[in-house]
């Protein structure tokens, strides 16, 4: 730090109360924000929109919903500036420990009635679902015309 101090004082004209010359805190931001990429063609095809809505079982709602995803992807693309060659993925910070496994014995339960009370439709001790194995209607029948016209 003592080597840097004279340099700093030479460059900074006038006395700066906020940052003492010998401070370990850098006086300037050490990195820049990535510029937001604008006016780019939509990244998301109609097929992808349809596919995602079926997988996620939520809809984009409107054009803004699709744009929000496009922005999220552009934001995520910054990751590709990082060199990760030879780096193993990290899925848990506790990877070097063994996971606790408890005895295979019933330790809690007997709350069937309480659990069923949280469901809106039950018959006896069963949750009730409408008929299954019917795929969601095709995109145009789900009223996605607004999303469609935008792309």
């Amino acid at each position: 730090m003592w080597f840097r101090a004279p340099l700093c004082t030479a460059w900074i004209s006038g006395f700066r109360r906020s940052l003492s010359a010998q401070s370990k805190v850098p006086p300037k931001p050490t990195w820049d924000l990535q510029p937001e990429i604008r006016n780019q063609k939509p990244l998301i095809s109609l097929d992808t929109i349809d596919h995602l809505e079926r997988l996620a079982l939520v809809d984009f709602g409107n054009v803004e919903g699709v744009q929000r995803l496009e922005k999220a992807i552009q934001f995520a693309d910054q990751l590709h500036n990082v060199n990760t060659e030879g780096v193993e993925p990290l899925s848990s910070v506790l990877e070097d420990r063994t996971l606790y496994i408890r005895n295979d014995a019933v330790a809690a339960g007997n709350c069937t009635e309480l659990l069923l009370e949280n469901a809106r439709t039950v018959v006896e001790e069963y949750f009730v679902a409408p008929p299954g194995n019917i795929p969601l209607p095709a995109q145009h029948e789900r009223g996605l015309s607004e999303v469609k016209s935008s792309s």
Partner: peptide
């Protein structure tokens, strides 16, 4: 109408 339709509408 169907289980899938219920899921999608509930989540929307």
């Amino acid at each position: 109408d169907s289980t899938e339709a219920l899921y999608a509408a509930t989540r929307r």
